[in-house]
Write a protein that binds this DNA or RNA. Structure first.
Ligand code: MN
Ligand code: MN
Ligand code: ZN
Ligand code: ZN
Lengths: 137, 137
DNA sequence: CTATTATAGGATAATTATTATCGACTGTCC
DNA sequence: GGACAGTCGATAATAATTATCCTATAATAG
């Protein structure tokens, strides 16, 4: 929480009551919540906060690196007619997605059995970075 | 394309002009397009097709396993206040996301250099399957 | 500690992506 | 070729997210 305030100051962000409550809610939620759920939790502390404020600050925190999104491409459904097992290269800048054959990597190997009785079906792996075009600029 | 028709028959889906055009568009688009882009392409062949039909059939194809979505959780932004490098267990049924420490797996290793001048920044790995609760039912 | 000011918050409207509805049409089966 | 279930197209509805705009507050200078 102290680190949070420090980062805000570094990035020129005002350390408001709302921002602290939102960040506190986020670190208390290990379930990878959607903005709506964060809003519910924050509202129990600040009943007058608006959903827009929660969205705005989540975006601010994402830019500041205080927070991560679980997926880079939630904004729209992205489709793949190739149903064979393969991976993806995803450009963090232009969001382009290209195929990466599974055997370009060593096979994924568990070191210990997956926790809490999780029954594994398959893996999806994305290599994030800059595509050739974006790397040029 | 023949396999497509066969799968439709197996799943009791009518092999319509529109479905074939949509599927043909999809396999011709290796860029992992959004529904809107698929619509644009299909429209050049069937100018009167509606966007709703494209959406409906994409959903149908996903259910039939003719098509995959690049991510399991595009429907809403999912947030992670843990910015350390780690992976995720994702339940394909209830969409719950839980953390998986990076050292529960052998490190990811490239066998050959990533294609087309892609500059790797990092990677994200999701293990898909059924959580304990969903596996029980 | 107070005044000043830039930034942030709250209410609300707007936009975007997606899904539902419903009457008309067409692929399938005989 | 006709009957019928399933599908299509048009449109409305919903859900998620973003923009707008005016007021309030955190930062900071005196
Ligand atoms: Mn692919
Ligand atoms: Mn996580
Ligand atoms: Zn790029
Ligand atoms: Zn589950």
């Amino acid at each position: 929480m102290e680190a949070f305030r420090r980062t805000c100051v570094e990035k020129g962000l005002a350390v408001t009551h709302q921002r602290q409550a939102i960040y506190r809610a986020l670190i208390s939620m290990p379930e990878h919540p959607a903005p709506e759920s964060v809003y519910e939790v924050v509202r129990s502390e600040i009943p007058t906060i608006s959903l827009g404020t929660v969205y705005k600050n989540i975006k601010t925190f994402l830019n500041a690196g205080l927070l991560r999104a679980v997926t880079l491409h939630h904004e729209s459904l992205r489709l793949d007619a190739n149903v064979e097992h393969h991976y993806h290269l995803v450009c963090t800048r232009c969001k382009s997605i290209t195929d990466l054959p599974a055997d370009d990597l060593e096979p994924i190997q568990f070191r210990r059995t997956p926790p809490r009785g999780f029954r594994v079906q398959n893996y999806s792996l994305e290599v994030h970075g800059l595509c050739a075009a974006c790397a040029a600029s």
